[in-house]
């Protein structure tokens, strides 16, 4: 099924169904993102962050429900997870994961969108960890938790996380959303 056709289908779907259905679906995916992120946490010591598999649901939300839903699921779901134990990362996560979901929902080929979303996530965290947090850290000590060198090390686990999220998100999209 072409992506244009699919976007049309989604528009049709949301216009027919009440907005409550959309709200429920988006919050369900955001909650699942938060829960999976909290449940499977592997610390990345270099940046004081952690590896997780919540990206699967962010990419699924983008692919299935479009960019707006992807943005909300990524930003809210992951930030809620960060609130438990890693509140310092909330600003970065809100921006990066939100962007990841938004990109996953772009009206382009699904595989490309998912991979692009993963790249955006890896690059986004690198920018925050290598430049923005150290810069902010000079003024506000709570942000002084990472350095450009550490951000370089975190590229590898972040890339693994991104690829796992993209593959998992695509697989889920095929088995959930691609049903008619």
């Amino acid at each position: 099924m072409s992506s244009k056709f699919y976007q049309k289908e989604i528009r049709k779907m949301t216009s027919q169904k009440s907005k409550f259905a959309q709200t429920a679906l988006i919050s369900a995916l955001a909650a699942l993102t938060a829960v999976t992120t909290i449940m499977v946490r592997v610390p990345i010591p270099a940046t004081n962050g952690y590896f997780n598999i919540g990206d699967v649901f962010i990419i699924l939300a983008g692919l299935w429900l479009g960019p707006k839903a992807g943005l909300i699921v990524g930003a809210v779901g992951s930030s809620v997870a960060d609130a438990v134990g890693f509140p310092v990362y909330i600003p970065a996560t809100f921006a990066v994961k939100g962007l990841e979901g938004l990109v996953a929902g772009l009206p382009i080929k699904k595989t490309v969108a998912a991979l692009l979303a993963a790249i955006v996530m890896v690059a986004g965290y690198y920018v925050f960890e290598a430049f923005i947090y150290p810069m902010l850290g000079n003024r506000i000590p709570m942000f002084a938790i990472t350095t450009p060198e550490a951000a370089l090390i975190a590229l590898l686990p972040n890339a693994v996380q991104g690829i796992a999220g993209a593959v998992g998100g695509l697989a889920l999209w095929h088995s959930i959303a691609n049903k008619k």
């Binding site: 779907m13 027919q16 169904k17 259905a21 679906l25 088995s175 959930i176 959303a177 049903k179 008619k180």
Partner: peptide, 11 residues
């Protein structure tokens, strides 16, 4: 999932 999708796309 098929049933759920049908519910989503129904009037």
């Amino acid at each position: 999932f098929k049933g759920f999708y049908n519910w989503l796309s129904a009037e």
